[in-house]
Design a protein around this nucleic acid. Structure first.
Lengths: 376, 376
DNA sequence: CTGAAAGCGCTTACAG
DNA sequence: CTGAAAGCGCTTACAG
């Protein structure tokens, strides 16, 4: 008689100086056990488990029932070891450049997760598009579908087109995870990203710490198209909400201004006008990563008295954080997003664990002093 | 002829709209390949790899050489599947109570990691001691050694005694990871925790944002014994360093005061005296989790104008963060510490990956608005 | 539609 | 000190 492995599980005894130990108990249920019980072969059980077809509906039903009854859980190790097919994951995100490497981070996170899951065979295929060119998105989305991956990770930069793409994934039976922005597709297995409204409130609280007393605040949104706009709107909303909810303290005047061009000359002119018009500006909240443009203006004009808060640890921002022009940056942790997205897919496929539908990333506050810990 | 699996590896081609794919290439090296090459059996290779003895030094040498030459990497899946012995990890940390649950978190992190590594057989055994009772530490340290685990995770609350314990681990060939506090034992495989000096500087920058202009700052250290003292000293050092390095801006006077009793009556009296003596106090930095005691004082005396920064997301602190008495808390992320500690051990044992000797945890800044993201 | 057998890469008694 | 063989739990052709 062979020795069987025991299933390990936790006993949570939390009496004080007590020890807690893993306790071995009930035998692990194997495919063989299911097969014996159902009076079929392991091959058949495998077919049922993986829905490979070629099983009579009667047998199928019987096996399914026993599977449930005995609470079968697959052994990922054995399964991966025996399987010849790797898990193919397609990643559909904007590409990055040395100047704008924000979108490099989710990829890095994905590869990080991948290397932790080294032993399970996972294949990543990248489909990268220009974040400002809708057609490139559409083109790449098509390629993804042609490639027929097991799962998809996508950043829904273009909302309508992404919805369309997700619909098609659904039709082809390909599960998908949305990162960084949430279009709330009913079939997405998870959203991994920040709560933009909340991050606006965080910005507001940081601002409040820095300004004390009266004065007005500027909310600057710099974006050359409306497609990436959702985040911006939500962030501003959160920023305003904060002041509305904080009773007692003096409420500053909040002036919103959006700019449709990203050139410094343009931004500089608009800012100069704003400062002329409003002499009591105490702080500026920039609703996305373009905060460095505003920082440049403040730095060049020697306005050290203005509090400045914005988003993302991209290089130009870091530079102005280090010379004290930007006070705080809020990180979207794009790397963590990628990491968690891939992990969710792995868990869903290999461990049959459904990820929680909304995986909110913490809103990290970065200042000059703690910056080093976040730059790996 | 059987079909061989190919080893998967990354090609990092970062040209722009290019796709990046996993490319299959060189065959994975198996024990069998090594055995063939060395003219021995797989059993012998296994003995060499795991240093199980019973191998002639000649054979051993030959196999070792080939192992290196062919860059053999074990297949964890197969190895775990075949192995009967679980990885036994002993955890030596203070126990927690409902009021003081800081030390619950590393355990939670460890179990989190454990459940991610579900399929590999890992057994955790807890050895918990009263953080204020040296003898309990010593007693539990002995028990750990008796238990003869494969690896140890320990929080070096009592420095000398921990050194002694680590020495014994070394002698018994048990690798150990130090969490939360670093006694820099030359043999520890890793330290997982924060940089306390740096966290003091972060506190200082947050303080600076909030105070503008002149005034003095209080640094309060509340600890009833000297054993946990290292952190406190380093944090204060970082706090002072910040002002020394920040030129230009007005430098506040910094008044340090340590309290050896934790009772509110005592703390209240001392604080009242300090406020009497120094009328221009603008902010208080409390160097550990006892910040709630100071918050209580400020709250009771209606001093809403004082900036307050301290450590750790324990319940009483969270309460005062939520009512705006504490402005910022710095989190030591004890859960993440536990998580990383266990992962390091797993990597070291199963994947032969040496962890980096110092794994610094980011210094997270928590305020009322982003608190929710950090409370899981 | 179903089963028997070989195989994934490693570890483990067992025999010598 | 060494090797041959069985086994970990699953998947995969192949034969019927």
């Amino acid at each position: 008689m062979r020795t069987r492995n025991y299933k390990i599980f936790f006993t949570f005894v939390l009496l004080l100086p007590e020890k807690r130990e893993f306790t071995s108990s009930n035998l692990k249920i194997r495919i063989k056990d299911i097969a014996d019980r159902a009076g079929v072969s392991t091959g058949t059980v495998d077919r049922v488990i993986h829905d490979r077809g070629e099983v009579s509906s009667r047998t199928r039903k019987k096996v399914m029932d026993i599977l449930k009854e005995m609470k079968y859980e697959p052994d990922v190790l054995a399964s991966s070891l025996a399987s010849k097919h790797p898990l193919k994951v397609a990643v559909l995100v904007p590409y990055h450049t040395p100047e704008n490497w924000f979108w490099k981070e989710p990829l890095t996170g994905i590869y990080e997760a991948c290397s932790e899951l080294n032993h399970f065979r996972i294949e990543i295929k990248e489909f990268l598009y220009d974040q400002f060119v809708k057609n490139e998105f559409i083109e790449n989305a098509k390629l993804v579908l042609l490639d027929n991956p097991d799962a998809v990770i996508a950043a829904p930069v273009f909302h309508l087109e992404t919805k369309d793409f997700f619909d098609k994934c659904k039709k082809n039976g390909i599960p998908f995870v949305s990162v960084n922005d949430n279009i709330r597709h009913p079939e997405q297995i998870s959203y991994v990203g920040q709560d933009p409204v909340r991050s606006g409130s965080v910005a507001a609280q940081l601002m409040k710490m820095g300004i004390q007393g009266e004065g007005s605040l500027l909310v600057i949104s710099i974006a050359r198209d409306k497609d990436n706009y959702n985040h911006i709107l939500y962030r501003e909303k959160g920023f305003r909400q904060y002041w509305e909810n904080s009773n007692g303290s003096p409420r500053p005047e909040i002036i919103s201004r959006s700019m449709s061009k990203e050139t410094y000359t343009y931004i500089k002119r608009v800012l100069a006008e704003l400062f002329d018009k409003h002499e009591d500006i105490r702080g500026i909240f920039v609703t996305n990563s373009r905060v460095y443009q505003v920082a440049k203006f403040l730095f060049n004009t020697g306005r050290k008295d203005i509090r400045l808060v914005g988003y993302d640890l991209i290089n130009p921002n870091v530079k102005y954080l280090n010379n004290d022009t930007i006070d705080f940056l809020i990180s979207q942790k794009p790397r963590e997003q990628g990491y968690k997205a891939l992990m969710s897919i792995f868990n869903a496929f290999k461990l049959n664990k459904k990820p929680s539908p909304e995986q909110l990333i913490p809103i990290d506050i970065i200042c000059k002093e703690n910056l080093c810990c976040y730059q790996v």
